[in-house]
Design a protein around this nucleic acid. Structure first.
Lengths: 340, 340
DNA sequence: TTCGGATTTGAAATCGATTACAATTTGTTT
DNA sequence: AAACAAATTGTAATCGATTTCAAATCCGAA
């Protein structure tokens, strides 16, 4: 107990056990075709026998070119179910390729984001998947300009052409709003998130466009919001529902805002959808567990995540490729919270 | 564009720039008191000037003793909000100490768990925080016996004395059941999770004990469950509520089961709490957004996570310490889903 | 049998830090 | 001023893999 029984197998030990040089063992490990069949088999046998497993740290130190075995993730808020889905999607593909991921959760705090970038860099991650704090994030721009493999998710960079995976936020917001309009609502409010986040503005735009398309005047009093969290959802719901002129429907800008709304609506005894119709941006796998089941704009976090890693791998393999922008579609999940 | 502008500062370059040896620079980096004040200042100036930042990969390769800078996490299910809270708690303390974390989400799949252990090992993480797939997880036992720093969360190991942070599951389940009993229920069912997970059995036991304390016969027909997920919650809720003799209250064994129940209860038009009282194990920060707000046994994932990292650090500092077992209390959050 | 090219293999440097040990400098004491 | 201890610093090996370049081996053709 307590003593260290280290597995001491190394390239060198395998080499001597096999009567070859370390170089040859390394070649076998990397499936170099220049190795003679018979020695390859011999070495592989010894690798198995010794229970050897490669030391990724040594490998990463030595190897210049990125291998994609360690992926750095920069996530604005791990408590947000959407990002959990993203992480899940990334993990799925990463695992299938033998990659591990280091996660930095920066809580939409730019300083923390920087610290994490420095840390992940110091860990020599092979590439980054980032949801930038905002569109002109200088630290992340630097990363990209250095040629560090990088894929942005959810949000892009304003000044730089990088690989991006997002969703058509504007269209999603449009569909949400349009759905409410078609149900007969004209007094539709929008609770939006942090305006420094690009998606927020795209969603606001989609909301406005929908109203305009149907000749409904945009009422600025009904466009409210500050930050993208639960508390903000509560605060602005209360604010909206205590106005003299209350809306009959609300489109919430993300899942946390939606949940905040739900909390307050219960407290205020506002029945949904009878007294207030609701469509939220972001779906959750348990959205049907809400009462009534939530009508929502679904953006598949897992799909975004999967796509992002794939792009990262491609970028690592071929650094010269032009950056591309993948825009996934959203889907309106009609359930009960809007009176369907 | 595309070219690699690497920041080439290294211990050696700082050394030559400062006119000292690499050893001295390393000493400054590690705050070795043996360095003369004046040279320390000089070196630090050059470090700043060159924008140098330490390469953790090289450091980890060279250094025998664990530094705690890279923590490996093995999580059974990242989609489960409870584990997200745990991760958040870990991250909070880890970040404050400049540590990064590598996450392996093994989906309660033992093979996947093994693969991740191998990967994290190959990455030479300084320690593990693990929620073992089950109590006699051989691979994790090995880790512990090798003296690898390790803290178990949520679940311990049956055969081995290791650092553990859990919650008093039995007591929690007891409180949940007792609450329902005190509200007048006698027909109380329990939907439990995967029985290979120790916590599941502790919670079943607590449930039974509560019934027995109040002289209510335990009805095995009302103790149902298979796995710990959403679908299982749906399946067994339907099963319970279509029996000839349906329960008037259900205690669900975890949050996913609770959400599954909620989904089906809406579908079956079972009003909560009027027709069915509900208390769930696991609270969520958005439990008040459910309609009605969920009465739940709260176990603080963040507290567990925080405590776990702290124990890991302690273990790394002092490997000889006897393992200890921390059992946190649960709290009954009385809200509306049980008729309060 | 010998030569030239293709196949295989090995020696040694390298990635960037740490550290044991030795060497040097400094300061104190007689 | 000599002698010795304490305070600083440097040299060189090391962690475990990869990679360049050269050396050794093999093969068929002349």
């Amino acid at each position: 107990m307590g003593q260290i029984i280290k597995n001491n197998a190394s390239v060198k030990s395998i080499a001597t056990a096999s009567g070859v040089s370390a170089a040859t063992v390394s070649r076998v490990l990397n499936a170099d075709p220049a190795v003679k069949e018979s020695t390859r088999i011999l070495v592989q046998k010894n690798i198995k026998k010794a229970g050897y497993s490669l030391n990724r740290v040594a490998q990463r130190l030595r190897t210049k070119k990125k291998t994609g075995r360690l992926i750095g993730l920069l996530i604005p808020d791990i408590q947000n179910p959407f990002y959990v889905d993203v992480i899940r999607g990334i993990e799925e593909i990463a695992y299938a390729n033998g990659s591990a991921m280091v996660i930095g959760n920066f809580s939409q705090d730019e300083d923390k984001e920087r610290v994490y970038i420095d840390i992940l860099r110091a860990e020599s991650v092979d590439g980054f998947i980032v949801a930038p704090a905002h569109g002109r994030d200088h630290y992340i721009e630097e990363l990209a300009m250095e040629g560090y493999p990088l894929v942005c998710i959810d949000r892009g960079l304003t000044n730089l052409n990088v690989d991006v995976v997002t969703v058509d936020n504007q269209e999603g917001a449009y569909k949400a709003t349009e759905h409410l309009i078609k149900l007969g609502h004209r007094k539709i409010a929008h609770i939006h998130g942090d305006k420094s986040i690009p998606t927020t503005n795209e969603r606001i735009l989609g909301y406005k466009l929908a109203l305009q398309s149907y000749d409904i005047p945009v009422n600025d009093k009904w466009i409210v919001g500050m930050s993208s969290d639960f508390e903000s959802g509560k605060f602005y719901t209360r604010k909206l529902m205590t106005m003299q002129d209350t809306p009959t429907a609300i489109f919430t800008g993300n899942n946390l805002l939606t949940l905040g709304l739900l909390d307050i609506s219960y407290q205020m005894k506002i029945e949904i959808p009878k007294m207030l119709a609701l469509v939220g941006f972001d779906d959750m796998y348990w959205a049907t567990s809400l009462n009534p089941p939530l009508t929502a704009i679904r953006q598949s976090g897992t799909a975004i995540g999967r796509r992002a890693v794939e792009m990262l791998y491609r970028q690592i393999e071929n650094p010269e490729r032009e950056p591309s922008r993948v825009i996934l579609k959203t889907e309106l999940m009609v359930r009960k919270s809007c009176g369907s």
